[in-house]
């Protein structure tokens, strides 16, 4: 593992014009991922996690506008690339994607093989240049690679599986197939958007461990989007906590879980039975990105907020090593 960052998201803000007004969905997002590492992106639903994923894939929502920031991927700012180049060189090829709901993510009217081979067609195997023609020989290579990968994720009868339809597989099997496919392309970075939320609890852990083991084997860095600190504790090297479109805390998984610095992180960890003795939920809900609270967006739900929190947006400040937090109360304390 090298220390140079594979991905650096700096100060990223994004807004979308809607009929109800401007939605400021991302507000100064800031985190980084190194090669081969697993980083958790954590926050309640509605915090903007999937939007971060979409932006990284170069798929801005309609009417969206980048207000500030940079996305350095292997040293190149993705926001300065032409959409055509992002599509050709980055999306699917260097940055892979695992969706949230394996039940909904397959086209029901085509065989699994047809769809997954099409994924390989556009992302290519690692040794194939972009714009490689999709000849029979290339297709046969892709097929062989896919079968090999399906074996690696424990799909029985991989060749037969390619001829079957999505509904003939369980949710867990479908997620395995998606993992096999994306890893066949060997991207540098894998974006997994809550990859197990749609599965039952026993399957969840199997899939997560499979994903971690394979990512380590292949040297693929993973951004693991989740709302569950349990997943972070089990899988992640580092973690970035988001609240309502703002990065509130980043650091090693260990430091953030054992010494959470932001009140939101504390409350989020307290929701988890394995990480906390007393389980308490967080009253209220994530504020809407349209006319969000001024200052720290968490202040209306924060137990220790003062008037200053409603005035001033806290910026990320380093606590110790890589542990950083954006909270005025913390600053005052230190």
């Amino acid at each position: 593992m090298t220390d140079t960052a594979l991905l650096e998201v700096r100060d990223l803000s994004l807004s979308v014009k809607t009929d109800a007004g401007v939605a400021r969905i991302l507000d100064h997002i800031d985190f980084s991922i190194r090669r081969g590492e697993i980083v958790g992106l954590v926050g309640e639903s509605g915090c903007g996690k999937s939007t971060v994923v979409r932006v990284l894939l170069g798929l801005l929502p309609k009417g969206a506008q980048i207000d500030s920031g940079r996305i350095l991927f292997k040293g190149v700012d993705l926001l300065t690339l032409r959409p055509k180049d992002v599509a050709r060189r980055i999306r699917g090829r260097s940055i892979g994607f695992i969706p949230q709901d394996p039940y909904q993510s397959f086209n029901p009217t085509f065989t699994v093989g047809k769809q997954m081979l099409e994924v390989l067609r556009w992302s290519g195997l690692p040794d194939e240049a972009p714009d490689t023609r999709w000849t029979r020989a290339v297709q046969a290579r892709h097929r062989a690679k896919l079968i090999e990968m399906l074996e690696a994720v424990n799909i029985a009868d991989p060749a037969g599986a390619l001829e079957r339809y999505p509904h003939q597989f369980s949710g867990g099997q479908r997620q395995r197939i998606l993992i096999a496919t994306v890893l066949a392309c060997q991207p540098d970075l894998l974006l997994a958007d809550e990859p197990t939320t749609a599965l039952d609890v026993t399957t969840q852990m199997q899939i997560l461990h499979l994903l971690r083991d394979l990512a380590l084997d292949f040297g693929v860095a993973v951004m693991m989007v989740t709302h569950d600190f349990g997943v972070v504790a089990q899988l992640c090297d580092r973690v970035s906590v988001m609240y309502a479109g703002q990065t509130v805390e980043t650091g090693t998984a260990h430091a953030v879980i054992h010494q959470p610095a932001h009140p939101y992180t504390e409350r989020l960890i307290a929701c988890h039975p394995d990480l906390s003795e007393t389980i308490v939920g967080i009253p209220g809900q994530v504020s809407s990105p349209i006319n969000p609270p001024m200052g720290c967006r968490f202040h209306p739900r924060c137990l220790i907020a003062t008037d200053a929190c409603a005035d001033q947006r806290p910026v990320l400040r380093t606590l110790e090593g890589a542990h950083r937090v954006a909270c005025l109360m913390r600053e005052a304390a230190s």
């Binding site: 798929l59 999306r91 699917g92 090829r93 892979g96 969706p99 397959f106 029901p108 556009w122 992302s123």
Partner: peptide, 12 residues
């Protein structure tokens, strides 16, 4: 969602 997946997987 499968259209979203296809987009994210790089389908033109």
């Amino acid at each position: 969602e499968y259209t979203t997946y296809e987009e994210a997987a790089g389908f033109p």
